[in-house]
Design a protein around this nucleic acid. Structure first.
Lengths: 354, 354
DNA sequence: ATGAAAGCGCTAACAA
DNA sequence: TTGTTAGCGCTTTCAT
């Protein structure tokens, strides 16, 4: 792409503003970055000139000088068929918004699918970003190691599960607490035999959530033998596991590690003519669109993504200004959104989905 | 945020490479941008030095000089409660990936919710982006006008519906064709009275899609009286409209303007004990996650977003290099994804959703 | 085919 | 309090 188009030629520079205000360029720069240095009337004159001309500092020049791009890098995975990381998308929306408040922008990049490290290094060497936000720490230890090695600042959404000597700031949501909330809710609406439908044992997040179910069941003094199921995160696998549990005849509660799994349970109930919320209770995780629109509405654990974004931006600031971060991690509390899959008289799902 | 951290200090510059290779800085620059000017052995020596040092040109410096940021701006709307623009999220994923192939990145920004123009101007004046991608042209005429006025390059995903003298390149998906496909499919599996469940009349996109249903029905010689419904895009509104249509007793086909509406129809069927795909056929639009996971699987019109992204990047290149774009618009064909809401023996939904 | 000089727009350091 | 000087790292003349 040849850089023929010169958008910038029409825009004013520091010099234009300086001339207009009858001061030097440096004074204009100070008016922007250290206004307290200027005499009041000078400041006003400069600000008036800035406003008249609609001047905004050139980012490239400023970045070249200050070595700060005011840009945060976020690797955006290619949309793989059938995989929709809706939770992450929601998070990105709030992150963009939160960062805008401090004049930062989000730079999306992608890398080779087979190489989780691809992309980071180039951006760093090109000084295109000040820092990174990493979003999948269960699979992403390689990323954090790379960034630590080269001394790049970053904050993760997710705990450093397998890295005891990780020293980077992180924000996470207490998944065990979420599963505990879900389970306690199911118990409170009258279910006793509450099953857990979770991911494979290799998933740290999955095991963490499962521990919350286990804790709630233990606290209620209920035996969990053969109630804890591990399977793949897809609707059909969950549907089949749910059928097995239902064959047992005593299981009426289902706490699930994801909305996908919960929706599989709902499918199984439909197939048996059982009424969700009446004959059985189902709780999902993440409060995704699927939870909103599934019939008759799926109770789900909701992660406070807005709060996560705010915390991350705060940590990013601390890291970039080399302030010590204490404590290193922030663990946030999820909440429960109750719908008809556990309480028949809950409000109808009427959510817009487009 | 004080710019204390100096990430870049550790990275090599043109000068470093020049010294290492025993040439001048300009020669290194030429090796990068005009390799054909160098003698073969010089080129090799320089490239070796670049590789050894892991050199990547500083973006700010290059941008300052060439006035090209290699960045495309995309306004990312705040995630509003209950609104999930899943389609756009999927599009952004593919856009990021496609742009990476030509060395471009996506800069996400947000603006004041009440001001659709907020954000664009600043980015332009700061020369932070080379161009914009605009994604909602039904509501976004103000954006395109602003950008045209200031001479900023941009491409839209969506036709300039209400702007006859728009002169910008665009890419869109033929919604009428999609609705036509949906309707023809419903007719082909035996439904005769196929209703349309669409948005309010004010939606250009909605009316366009509706016209496709109408065309297919006319072609089949079926009367559409009282079969075309307009309502709000939410599950519950659609559910109630579906009940009204079902009360009629003759309607068995439902072509919908969105998956949300289609899911509302599925809910109504459940409530009546009717079997989707057997007693009635339902088709949605956008092939969202909801279509994948809803029970028993929702047939839906799928937009070729990957192709949209590719076309947009192509147009972006043309615009940035001031090449004439002919034709100005590209209208792409949607496809139909068949699931059990129309064909009982279609494969089960087993899609991963996390 | 390669090198020297200039300057993009900005701010840090210093001088006035 | 304001102005001057220098230079961030790169590419674009233009000279050699």
């Amino acid at each position: 792409m040849s850089p023929t188009r010169r958008l910038t030629d029409q825009y004013p520079t520091l010099a234009t503003v300086a001339e207009r205000a009858g001061v030097s360029r440096q004074t204009v720069s100070n008016a922007l970055n250290n206004p307290e240095l200027l005499r009041e009337d000078t400041l006003e004159r400069v600000q008036a000139a800035i406003a008249e001309l609609g001047y905004t500092p050139n980012r490239a020049a400023r970045q070249l000088r200050t070595r700060a791009s005011h840009m945060i890098g976020l690797r955006f995975e290619p949309a793989q068929e059938g995989t929709s990381n809706a939770l992450m998308d929601r998070f990105v929306h709030t992150l963009v918004e939160t960062m805008a408040k401090t004049g930062h922008h989000v730079l999306l990049f992608s890398g080779a699918v087979d190489d989780p490290l691809d992309g980071y290094d180039d951006l760093l060497r090109a000084t295109a970003v000040d820092a990174f936000v990493i979003t999948d720490t269960y699979a992403g230890t390689a990323e954090t190691e790379l960034l630590r090695r080269v001394g790049a600042p970053f904050v993760t959404f997710g705990r450093p599960w397998d890295d005891p000597d990780a020293a980077h700031p992180w924000v996470d949501v207490d998944g065990a607490r979420g599963a505990c909330l879900a389970t306690e809710h199911l118990l409170s609406v009258g279910h006793r035999r509450v099953a857990w439908l979770g991911w494979e044992e290799t998933s740290r997040i999955g095991e963490d959530r499962r521990s919350g179910w286990r804790r709630a069941m233990d606290d209620a003094g209920i035996d969990t033998a053969r109630l804890g199921i591990r399977t793949t995160d897809n609707v059909d696998a969950a549907r089949m596991e749910a059928h097995k549990l239902l064959d047992d005849g005593t299981v009426t509660g289902f706490a699930c590690a994801s909305d996908t799994l919960a929706i599989g349970v709902l499918h199984a109930l439909h197939e048996r003519g059982l009424r969700p919320g009446v004959d059985a209770g189902v709780v999902g995780f993440d409060d995704s669109l699927g939870a909103h629109v599934s019939w008759p509405g799926l109770t789900s654990v909701r992660q406070p993504l807005e709060q996560v974004a705010v915390e991350i931006v705060g940590l990013l600031h601390a890291v970039l200004s080399l302030k010590p971060v204490e404590p290193l991690g922030r663990l946030l509390e999820p909440t429960l959104v109750v719908r008809r899959s556990t309480v028949p008289e809950a409000p109808r799902p009427g959510t817009r989905a487009r």
